[in-house]
């Protein structure tokens, strides 16, 4: 029985071999095809980004010229000047900055001890809590949106940055704790033992030895929170009502007019909103990729 099966597979392999030989292309052609597909993927991924920049540096007439040309004929910074001269954009940027810093600091402070305790200590709920945190991240925002609205209205916190902070924590904190736990469980246990042997209290061992060791992980989590808070749109657009409390993404979407939209200025705003994120990302690429990919999945 088994022999027959092997025999069959052997036959199949033999039959398949010449065919695959015939299909095998010469080395140069294969490499050429590889690079061709890489370029196609690259252009597909980068083109909208290019188009945003290209639009932002064109003159007003050229933007609405038909047919549109791939390369800008004239380069101007007029759109950026128009955008930055008004006080609104600065105010949006300031709001975004305040909110991002506040949410990041609070969520890192709270998640750092929780993540550590979950990774290191056995206590009632030390198995269930992390899973619960992961669940917390998966709830559909739309289900939380309504009770948040009712609550913020009740407290009179609608249309304020401090009202948005707890809302953002609901969206950030659970995954922060989960990621932190992942990072702390990678710090070797023996380090803590050594510190305790040398007479540190448990808190000192955590504060002076473990925390500095886990710094790359903490930086990754903090960056992750910053990026998400900076980009968030749904909650901000629902709970922020007045123009001067708007965050950057909200301000950008507000530039879309009912009938006409100044796409040059809008795209300039897009470039400026995306720039800090892109900078952070390309500086910390390694940390973030392993943090989000590894930490989230592997735990």
């Amino acid at each position: 029985m088994e022999a027959a099966a092997i025999h069959e597979r052997e036959q199949e392999k033999l039959a398949a071999r010449p065919k695959s030989r015939a299909l095998r292309l010469p080395r140069q052609v294969r490499t050429g095809l590889l690079y061709l597909s890489l370029w196609i993927a690259f252009i597909w991924a980068v083109f909208p980004f290019y188009w945003m920049i290209a639009t932002s540096i064109r003159g007003k007439e050229e933007i609405f010229q038909r047919p549109p040309s791939l390369l800008p004929h004239t380069v101007t910074i007029q759109n950026y000047v128009d955008l930055l001269v008004g006080a609104q954009f600065w105010r949006y940027a300031m709001n975004s900055l305040i909110l991002t810093l506040g949410v990041t600091i609070i969520s890192v402070l709270i998640s750092v001890t929780a993540g550590y305790a979950m990774a290191r200590h056995r206590f009632k709920g030390s198995v269930m809590l992390p899973l619960f945190m992961l669940y917390g991240q998966m709830f559909p925002p739309v289900l939380l949106l309504i009770p948040f609205y009712v609550q913020l209205r009740f407290l009179g916190w609608l249309d304020s940055l401090y009202g948005l902070t707890p809302v953002y924590l609901s969206y950030m904190l659970p995954l922060c704790v989960w990621l932190m736990r992942g990072f702390f469980s990678q710090v070797p246990l023996s380090l803590e033992d050594a510190a305790r042997m040398d007479g540190c209290t448990r808190w000192q061992a955590f504060w002076k030895v473990i925390l500095p060791m886990a710094r790359p992980g903490i930086v990754a989590v903090a960056t992750w929170v910053m990026i998400h808070t900076w980009n968030e749109f749904l909650y901000a657009s629902t709970f922020i009502l007045s123009e001067k409390k708007r965050t950057l993404p909200l301000g950008l979407s507000g530039l879309i007019g009912q009938y006409t939209t100044d796409w040059g200025v809008l795209m300039a705003g897009g470039v400026i909103t995306a720039a800090p994120i892109l900078l952070v990302f390309f500086f910390l690429q390694r940390h973030l990729v392993s943090g989000v990919g590894g930490g989230a999945v592997k735990g």
């Binding site: 993927a41 690259f42 991924a45 980068v46 909208p48 980004f49 188009w51 945003m52 639009t55 933007i63 609405f64 010229q65 038909r66 047919p67 549109p68 791939l70 900076w230 980009n231 749109f233 993404p249 950008l252 979407s253 879309i256 796409w263 809008l266 795209m267 897009g270 909103t273 995306a274 994120i277 892109l278 990302f281 390309f282 690429q285």
Partner: peptide
């Protein structure tokens, strides 16, 4: 790095850029 760009661009910025690219009269 290039292929990761869409993931990094803030979602509102990306969506608005696509909306502009889809423009019915002068969209690229």
């Amino acid at each position: 790095s290039g292929i990761l760009v869409p993931w990094v661009v803030p979602s509102v910025v990306a969506v608005l850029t696509w909306r502009w690219m889809y423009d019915p009269s002068v969209g690229i």
